[in-house]
Design a protein around this nucleic acid. Structure first.
Length: 422
RNA sequence: GGAGACGUCGCAUAGUCCGGUCGAGUGCGCCUCACUGCUAAUGAGGUAAGGAGUCAAAUCCUUCGGAGGUUCAAAUCCUCUCGUCUCCGCCA
C-alpha cells in the first residue's frame, strides 16, 4: 500500500511511477478525490459523535421530565450518527479499494520500460563448450530419464500436465540442495523456518498476490484458504499486525512447497520441469529499516549469487524493468542460469525490494525512540528446486549422460562425485 | 468431531452477573525527574495504535480477539465467527 501522506504531497511522483509500470495514472486522481471525500465525512461523523457522547452523559445524570426530553433529542441524534457513520464507512471502503489498486512506487534506479528492457548487470562463470568436449547436449528431461531422477510421464498420469515425480537420485538431489541452501542461509544470519503453505485471505491480500497475480493463485473454496505460490507470503505475514522491537535486519529463510496455476502461460515451457504447478523452494525474507533496504537488497542478491556459485552454474544478473515488476516491488534483480539445451539464460532466482508496500498492508511496523514507523520488506529466492535441478543436470552433464555433482553438494549426497545412469 | 473454560492498553490481571460515573483501575516492566559517591532501594510523573485537526499544539473520533445485532448509550446484553487451554473421540 502506498503511503497516503506521500501521495497527497506529491501526486506527480506516484503518477510517474504508475506510468513507468504501464499502469493507470488516472487512478491517482481518483484516490485523491476519494481521500478528500473521506476526510469531510470523517469531520461530519466526529462532530455528531461528540455531540452524542456529551448528551449521553447528561442523560445518565438527568431525572424525570428532563431525562425524557434529553432522550428524545438523543434519539434523533442517534439516527444522524448512524447515517454519518454509514456514509463514512462507504467512503473508507471506496478509498481503500482504490489505494489497494496502486502498485508500489518504483525505485528511481530501476530501468524504465517493458519486459525486454531489463539491464544486464553482469555475467558470472564460464559456459562449457560442449561441442569442443565432444558432447551432444541432452536436455534435463532426457538426463532425468537416463538417471532415473525425474518421472514426468507418471506425474502427468497422476496429477496432470506440469506435474512430476522426483525419483531416486533426483529426490535425494532435492534434499541435498535444501540442506546446502539452508546451511548457507543460516551462516548468513537467517532464521530457518518451515512455514504453512496454506494461508488465509488476509495474508495473501497483504502480500499483494490477489491483485494482478490473482489468476495464478490456487484457492480452496471450501475452507477459504489459499495455497501459497511462494513462502514469501507466510514469512511476510508472520509478523502481521505486530510492532517489532530488536535488531534489524530480521532475516528468515523458509523451505516450503509453492503452488502456481500458471494460468497466463499456456504453451510456454511445456517440456520438462522448468515451469510446473508445484515445486519446493528455499526463500529468504528480510524485515529491515527503510534507509537500509537498498543495501539489504544487494546483500540478498549476493547470497543468491553465493549459492549459484557454490553449485557452479554460469549465470547473469539482470535489473528488471519497471513494467515487469510485481505490484509490491520497487526494484527487482533476477539471476538467470545458463541452460545449455536452450542456449539462453533463464530465471532461477529473483529478489525484490518491496520497501514499505507490504508492511503497510500487513500492519507491520518497527518501534523507534519516538513512536513507530513502517518497515521495509525484501524477499529473494535462494533455491527454486526444480529450476536448479534443470540447471545442474544440464550444465554438469557428461558424454554418457551421467552428471557431475558440484563439490558443495557432495557432502549431502554421501560424497559421490557423479549421478550415475540407472 | 463432542463437552467445558477463557480471549481487556509490552506482560500479568481488575472491570462483564446488575449497560451510562470505563479509553478503562492495579501490579510488573519500561522512560523521565528527585534523592543517594555508583548501583540498588525509595518518591513523583509518564508509558497503546490508527485517524481528523494544527506551523506546532490544544482538542476530537475509532479500537477491550473479529464481524453483526439490541439500545438514546455496549468492555459489559444477544448472535455468529476466529483463536487459546482442559477433557473425550478420531488420526498421520
Amino acid at each position: 500500500m502506498i503511503d497516503l501522506a506521500t501521495l497527497r504531497l506529491d501526486p506527480g511522483a506516484v503518477k510517474r511511477s504508475q506510468a513507468a509500470r504501464g499502469e493507470s495514472e488516472a487512478l491517482v486522481d481518483d484516490v485523491l478525490a476519494a481521500d478528500i471525500a473521506r476526510r469531510s465525512a470523517v469531520g461530519e461523523f466526529e462532530a455528531l459523535r461528540t455531540k452524542q457522547k456529551a448528551l449521553g452523559s447528561q442523560v445518565a445524570k438527568a431525572q424525570g421530565g428532563e431525562k425524557q426530553a434529553l432522550l428524545t433529542e438523543s434519539k434523533s441524534l442517534s439516527d444522524q450518527v448512524k447515517a454519518a457513520e454509514g456514509a463514512l464507512r462507504e467512503m473508507d471502503a471506496a478509498l481503500d479499494s482504490l489505494v489497494l489498486g496502486l502498485s508500489n512506487l518504483v525505485d528511481a534506479e530501476a530501468p524504465v520500460g517493458t519486459e525486454d528492457d531489463f539491464v544486464v548487470l553482469k555475467e558470472v562463470g564460464s559456459k562449457r563448450d560442449f561441442p569442443a568436449e565432444g558432447i551432444t547436449v541432452r536436455d534435463h528431461v532426457e538426463l532425468g530419464e537416463l538417471l532415473g531422477a525425474i518421472d514426468i510421464e507418471r506425474g502427468a498420469k497422476v496429477s496432470g500436465s506440469r506435474f512430476y515425480y522426483l525419483t531416486g537420485q533426483g529426490a535425494m538431489l532435492e534434499f541435498a540442495l535444501i540442506q546446502l541452501a539452508m546451511t548457507l542461509a543460516q551462516k548468513n544470519g537467517f532464521i530457518p523456518m518451515i512455514p504453512p503453505a496454506l494461508v488465509k485471505p488476509a495474508a495473501m491480500e497483504g502480500t499483494g498476490f490477489l491483485g494482478q497475480a490473482a489468476e495464478n493463485v490456487y484457492r480452496l473454496e471450501a475452507d477459504d484458504l489459499y495455497l501459497v505460490g511462494t513462502s514469501e507470503v507466510p514469512l511476510a505475514a508472520y509478523h502481521m499486525d505486530e510492532i517489532l522491537d530488536g535488531d534489524f535486519p530480521l532475516r528468515y529463510v523458509a523451505y516450503s512447497p509453492c503452488f502456481r496455476r500458471e494460468a497466463g502461460s499456456h504453451g510456454k515451457d511445456t517440456r520438462g520441469i522448468f515451469r510446473v504447478h508445484w515445486f519446493d523452494k528455499v526463500e529468504m525474507f528480510s524485515f529491515c529499516p527503510v534507509d537500509e533496504a537498498q543495501a539489504e537488497h544487494q546483500r540478498l542478491l549476493s547470497f543468491e549469487e553465493e549459492f549459484l556459485q557454490a553449485i557452479e552454474i554460469p549465470y547473469r544478473v539482470i535489473d528488471v524493468a519497471t513494467g515487469d515488476l510485481g505490484s509490491s516491488a520497487a526494484r527487482k534483480f533476477d539471476c538467470e542460469a545458463w541452460i545449455p539445451s536452450q542456449e539462453r539464460y533463464r530465471e532461477v532466482t529473483s529478489t525484490s525490494n518491496c520497501t514499505t508496500f507490504q508492511s503497510r498492508r500487513l500492519k507491520i511496523r518497527k518501534r523507534t525512540t519516538d513512536g513507530v514507523e513502517p518497515i521495509a520488506t525484501l524477499n529473494g529466492t535462494l533455491c527454486a528446486v526444480t529450476r536448479i535441478i534443470v540447471a545442474i543436470l544440464e550444465n554438469h552433464q557428461e558424454a554418457d549422460g551421467s552428471v557431475r555433482i558440484p563439490k558443495a553438494l557432495q557432502p549431502y549426497l554421501g560424497g559421490a562425485s557423479h549421478f550415475k545412469l540407472k
